[in-house]
Each structure stands twice: as C-alpha cells, then as structure tokens.
Design a protein around this nucleic acid. Sequence first.
RNA 1: GCCGCCUUAGCUCAGUGGUAGAGCAGCGGUUUCGUAAACCGCAGGUCCUGGGUUCGAAUCCCAGAGGCGGCUCCA
Length: 620
Amino acid sequence: MGDEQNQAPVVAAATATGETEEYFEAAVRGSVDELLDAGAHTEVDAMRHSAAHVMAEAVLGIFPEAQLGIGPSIDDGFYYDFLLPRPLTPDDLAAIEAGMRASIAADHPFVRKEFPFKKARAFFEARSQPFKVEILDDLATRSKDSNTPLPPTSTYEHGTFVDLCKGPHVASTGRIGPFKLLSVAGAYWRGSEKRPMLQRIYGTVWPTQQELDAYLARREEAKKRDHRRLGVQLDLFSFHDVSPGSAFWHPKGQRLWRILETAVREVQDKRGYQEVSTPMLVHKKLWEQSGHWANYQDSMFVLESEGQTFSLKPMNCPESTFIYKSRLRSYRDLPLRFSEFGRLHRNERSGTLSGLTRVRHFVQDDAHIYVRPDQLQDEIMALLGEVYEIYGWFGLEPKFTFGTKPDKALGDPALWEKAESQIKAALDSLGKPYRLKPKDGAFYAPKIDIQIEDALGREWQTATIQVDLVMLPERFDCTYIDENGQAVRPMTIHRAIYGSLERFIGVLIEHFAGAFPVWCAPVQAVVIPIADRHIAGADELAALLSARKLRVEVDRSDNRMQNKIRLAQEQKVPYMLVLGDREIEARTVAIRNRSGEQENGVGWDAFAERLAAETAARRP
RNA sequence: GCCGCCUUAGCUCAGUGGUAGAGCAGCGGUUUCGUAAACCGCAGGUCCUGGGUUCGAAUCCCAGAGGCGGCUCCA
C-alpha cells in the first residue's frame, strides 16, 4: 500500500517504555501475551493512532467535559471512545472533522513526556479523566501483582491536548494523511456489559488521498456486494418481522439451496455417509444430559406442553447417539457416519442478528462420525480432503486453525494428547501452513476450524471438524464391542462443511457479487427472443435445455432486446441466448455471457452439450 | 440485551405542523425492435404499530416492533 516516496521518518518515537494503551487494549481482549509481542508499529499505524489523538482534541473542543476512554489504531483506521453529555449527531461529526483539520493545519508537534506514576495519576485526576486514572491504577495493580517495578508513565502532547499514551506517533499533526470520520457506535467501557457504555467514533486515515479514495471505494464495493441487498435484487430470499432472524427462501434462493444440498449429499453418498433425520422438538432432559441446558438455556427456544419442558434443538449432536445406540455396534461397523441436514434454532440476542450470517434459524450440513481410536487419523485426513473437494467447487481456499485443549477440558488427558497428535499429523500431512490456537478447543474436543477468504479479502468461519472425546461417547455412554468382546468407547467427530447453509450462501453471494458459477446459478440461461415471432423458437430451445435439467427461462415480455439483456445482466445470469430470424432459421443461437462476450451461430445441441458439461464439472 | 440511527407505493428515495410525491417495477394501449432502459396512459399508501400533544401530525412527544452501524455473546 505505502508508496516508496513516502518513506520519510514520520515516526517520532519507535520505542517506548510506558505501558499504557497497548497494554490496555490487550487487557481488554483478555490476552496479556499480546502485550509482549505488541508488534512493530508501521508508519501508517502511527498516523492512525495520531489521528485518534487529534480527534480526541477536537471532541474536547466541543465537549470540554468529555471523558476519554481509549483510542487505538485499528485495521484501516482508528477509533476513540468517549463519555459525552449527549448522543452525537452527524453534524457533530462534521464539526469534529473541522476541528481535526484545524489541528492538522496548525502542524503541532507530538511531544513525548515521562512522569512518575503519582504525578501522572494526579494530572489525569485533576483533569477529570477517571478512565485514564483507572488505566493507571490497573497498571499499578498489575505491577504489584507481578512484582515488577512500575515504569515511568508516558504522555503525548500536541498543542494543548495531553493523553496518556505509549506511542508511537508521527512527528507532528501535519503528518497525518487524508482522513474521514465514518460512524458512531456504542461500546462498553473495557468491553464489559456491566460497565458504562461510551460513544465510539470510527475514522479512517491513509497516507495519500488516492489510498483514502480507494479505501472508500472498496467500502462502496462491499456495500454493493452485501448479500442482504443482492438477496432482494436477485429475488433469493427475504426477511420479515414475523420471524426475525429467519430467512424466507424464494424460489430462486431455494433452487440455489437445493443445488448446494444435492452436491454435498452426492459427496456424502460417495464417502460412506448414511443420512439420518432427528426431531426438532426435544425434551429438556436431553440438554441437561449433554450439558447445554446449564450453559445455553438462555439461547434456546423453550416450550411447555402437558407440564413437560421441551426446546427446539440448537444442535444435532446428542440426538445422533440415539440412533447409534439403537442396537449393539461391532468394531466392524465403524466408522459409522451419520449425516443430517438439521434445522436448528438458537435464540440469539436481538441486537446480534444480521442478514444470513447471524440468524436464529439455520440448517447445518452436520455429520457425526463414530470411529475406533485407530481410525481417527485416517478419518480426519479424509475429512480434510472432503473440505478441499467441496470448497474447490467455489474456488475457495480453506484455511485451517487447530484449537487445542482448553483449561476447563473434560476427559482423560492422555486421550486428549493422543487425539491432538493425530489431528496434528493429519494437518501436517497436508503440507500447507495452518494456524495454531492453543487452548481454543471445545471443552469436549480439540478442533479444526476452517475459514475462507472471500473475493474482498474478508475472512469467514464456515466449516468445523471437532474430535469429541467426552460429550457424545461418555455423557451418552456410547460403546462398541471390540475384537475381544469388550464394550469400549468410540471417538466421535462432529463435522460440518458448509457449516450453516444460510451463512455459506451469504458468503457465496458476497464472494461472487451475486454472479454464481454456472454450475450453481439459479438461472443458468435466459432465452431472449428478439421479437414475438421468435417466442415459439425460444420455447423450443428452452424445452430442449430443461429436458437436460438445465435451468433456463424465456423472457417473453414485450421489452426490446436491449432491455431484456439489461435485465438478464442485472440478474447476473451466466448466458443470454438471443434468438432472431437468422438463428431460428439455422437452429443456432447468439450467445452473450454476463461479461459481455459474444459468440454467434452456435447450434442448439452444441450449446446444450456445453452447458451440461459445465454444470457437471462444478467449476468456480 | 446495550448505545446511536433508520422505517413514506413492490423497490430506491423526496417530502420538518396545513388536501401524500418522483423514478423504476406493475397493469392497459401503441410498438416487434440485433447485444445494458421504446412511447403514451392508468392504478398503486394504516406514511412500521399503539398511545399522546395540537383546531390540524408522515412531520412534535412517549412506548413497542423490525432493520442498520457497533458493543457484548456465538454450543
């Protein structure tokens, strides 16, 4: 991003000893480790952090009584949290921007100062900045607890503004590049629901105007790709207040859904899964046994009937054990792979709902695989292969994150160790780098989480592979009879490849900007008769394609051809098949694809053949 | 759930206390056209819901619902 001419030494202080904001950010995230490798600041980070200071200065100019929280740099920009006497309005943002411009024009130098702890504390107390005092007290407590001497406290000043800060900053406010304030949001102090809610102002800063413009353009592009917008435009689904957080699937959306479901079902059939289906309404005693009632009761939809308490299932796993245990299982039966497209309901808090990516009702392409311990590694490797096979259809490159045993884990540590080493061996055998997140496993299972990056570089959590040592095998007392006639515990693997179908479709919409690959596009081709007299021919061509299960529509409106093309383009239909006198005569078609490329005089059968081949190939 | 903002025709939006508007879509008519918008006309509204203030409310106030931007949460 940063261009070569901009390599002037804009960073005022590359190192600092006072632990303040970086420490505090890390503490907010609950990871003291992050403090130790806080990482090298880049120039643009310093610029963003400096912009946060300048913004705080401007806010104080308007609200002298404002109390300051923290103001770090973040990806693409910065924010600062404030406790203010009233909510901010868009006009306030404009005024704050104006204040910032004035400060930048004045080109105040950033000056670092160090103070003894007590003096710094007194300073911020005198300035009525209780949050800053709390940060300092927190540092003092921490230094006392760890028996390390309290380092001197550093501040950064520019003009009349002084902030508790570790730095680094740019040399002076004039070095701050083009910026824009973006939004105001609520944010709990220290990220805790029990603490006051502050007003957070987000902004973005870039070294050059071109980079700022490019960033803003990128945001606009992301908006255009927003699946909530495209879902309406492409007539895929809608949401209604009668069922918040649950999509209503329209015919085209449902068609896409079914294509994805059919494709993964085909893979499951090939790979030895057996599909099952379990009830949606389940007695609470099942959740008490699994442990979910204790932990997740608040996020379950609970119903009473005849004095009994039931819930809509928030997950499928426990129910698969009833099928497993419906008969004695032999070591020869394993692995047993039960797949299920389970409809789940989770009562997510209203404020967290968002389009298809955060819903209350969703379908998982779930499976529970019961294996002998000696089969675990092979099975994991097969699952990784499955992920590659399926994500390859969309040109998505899976990234793997290995989460290991958490502190509160249940079960035999030796078993954990064994399972983790087998997961590691399977991951290593891929020969691709993967991320390690120590202690990030579920309480019952080490896991591999799978993320994908979409066309805009955003990362999404989709698939998961969890090696369950405890919950299903032990809590539900699953066994099989081994070679010696002994009942022993299987291991279970929970896996989902799309994860939630809803979320996966949302990600696909944004990844492809609605222009789905030919194989899964809800409408693969629109036949466009140039005039009414060509409709009969269009119907004939469409029938020929439909007979091969290709998804085709005829535009029989009285629009002109240009408008029919425009509408098909807007619907991101892969092929527009234009039929006029010449084509009908020769039983050919003029093909226009959605990138605007044209090919004339293609025979009907030849096109059908081509489209059928493309569909079967499942290429991105 | 919490903070802020938003909700007007199917969609996108204008309308800041005095008789509800536009474009697109829809419907009717004319048009039958060669690669991203033919022309004319008609119809379409519980201005999110419920209270309140006012002679009068889409507009001001209160409560609720849904959505959006975040925070928190995410088996």
